[in-house]
């Protein structure tokens, strides 16, 4: 699926929720079940500083040249949103990641979590994910040495 198809999927899922509680219960669930980040990446080198909750992010590339993000946070709601973001952005080419327009966050009513005043590290995380996309696509464009 493309990045936008994945976003549409999430928007459809969230449309089913009756109230904020169901929505957050779902996010918390995603957070609790987020695939663990390899402990070697849960270090300060991979830490994105948010004033309130911390986010660790690692970007790798699989055999077919697609980006694979793994991430973690010390706050479970942040983790749940991380799960959504990695779900959308993982397994695409670096160029696709770099150019992605992440509109689903707004559509599912979580925009506030990406506001710079929220200081939960998520906004920086999105920026960092795209930067990884840029860096990796530049690298892919380099001629083989």
């Amino acid at each position: 699926m493309t990045i936008n198809e994945l976003q549409e999927d999430i928007i459809t899922t969230f449309d089913f929720f009756g109230d904020w509680m169901e929505k957050y219960e779902y996010i918390i669930d995603l957070g609790k079940n987020l695939e663990l980040i390899d402990p070697q990446y849960k270090t300060d080198d991979y830490l994105i500083k948010g004033c309130q909750s911390k986010v660790w992010l690692h970007a790798g590339v699989d055999n077919s040249g697609k980006v694979v993000f793994t991430a973690d946070s010390d706050a479970v709601i942040t983790k749940g949103i991380i799960a959504l973001l990695t779900q959308v952005l993982s397994h695409h080419t670096p160029a696709e990641v770099a150019q992605a327009d992440l509109y689903f966050i707004d559509k599912i009513g979580l925009k506030e979590h990406l506001s710079p005043t929220r200081s939960n590290g998520l906004l920086s995380m999105v920026k960092q994910m795209k930067l990884y996309g840029l860096a990796l696509s530049a690298k892919a464009a380099e001629p083989e040495k």
């Binding site: 904020w20 509680m21 957050y24 918390i28 309130q52 909750s53 010390d74 706050a75 479970v76 709601i77 942040t78 939960n120």
Partner: peptide
């Protein structure tokens, strides 16, 4: 729990 999670839900 993390304080941030509690605060987020209280805000709701």
């Amino acid at each position: 729990t993390h304080p941030f999670d509690v605060g987020t839900l209280l805000d709701q």
